[in-house]
């Protein structure tokens, strides 16, 4: 009974974090959903072994390891159509409540642009960037989750920010052409 309650709390709290991280790392909704399911099963299997307050880094470490396994196991060959579909879905299907269709589309396109730029970051930079900027993790938590020194986390984050800026410039240049 207590285990079930603990499991529910953990899932409610971390399901979106796991899914978001997996999505950015794997660049594929279906794989991200698979990883999320696997992490949830692992949480259930280990629910009696960890403290609910210290579960955050364990969960993200597990998620990261599973994402790396997925990336190693098979070279992700996402078809161009699929990517386009997902971008289209993200860009035009979000239910933003605004009366101005131009504004809605513009905002959605900006979001898509930044998401795509993040997805183009190198794997090691992307993981730190997503955990810090999107998931709101602290340096120490990222260090534990990704098993790297805190200083490396800071260096990777700075590199990721610079790289993202370059990617966006590149994207803008492409748009102009």
């Amino acid at each position: 009974m207590l285990e079930q309650q603990k499991y529910r709390i953990l899932i409610q709290q971390y399901k979106n974090k796991i899914y978001t991280y997996s999505l950015y790392m794997l660049k594929n909704k279906m794989d991200a959903e698979d990883v999320t399911q696997e992490v949830m099963i692992k949480i259930w299997q280990n629910v009696d072994k960890f403290n609910i307050l210290a579960a955050k880094t364990w969960i993200m470490k597990t998620t990261n390891n599973l994402c790396i396994d997925y990336l190693r196991r098979r070279a992700i060959s996402v078809s161009r159509e699929f990517e386009i579909d997902e971008i289209f879905e993200d860009t035009y299907s979000n239910n933003l409540t605004s009366d101005n269709p131009y504004l809605v589309t513009h905002l959605n396109m900006m979001t898509s642009r930044i998401k795509e730029a993040i997805k183009r970051l190198p794997e090691n930079l992307r993981s730190v960037f997503v955990l810090y900027e999107i998931e709101g993790f602290k340096y120490r938590e990222i260090s534990k989750s990704l098993e790297m020194p805190v200083n490396s986390v800071k260096v990777y984050l700075m590199r990721a920010r610079k790289k993202l800026q370059e990617e966006l410039k590149h994207y803008e240049a492409q748009e102009v052409i």
């Binding site: 979106n16 796991i18 899914y19 999320t36 259930w44 930044i114 993202l164």
Partner: peptide
């Protein structure tokens, strides 16, 4: 400008149909 855009990104919503399971 980039930081503002990044900070506006929220977490992706994981669809409920997938979490209605208990191991």
């Amino acid at each position: 400008a980039t930081a503002e855009e990044v900070h506006q990104l929220g977490e992706e919503e994981y669809e409920d149909r997938s979490i209605h399971f208990r191991g």
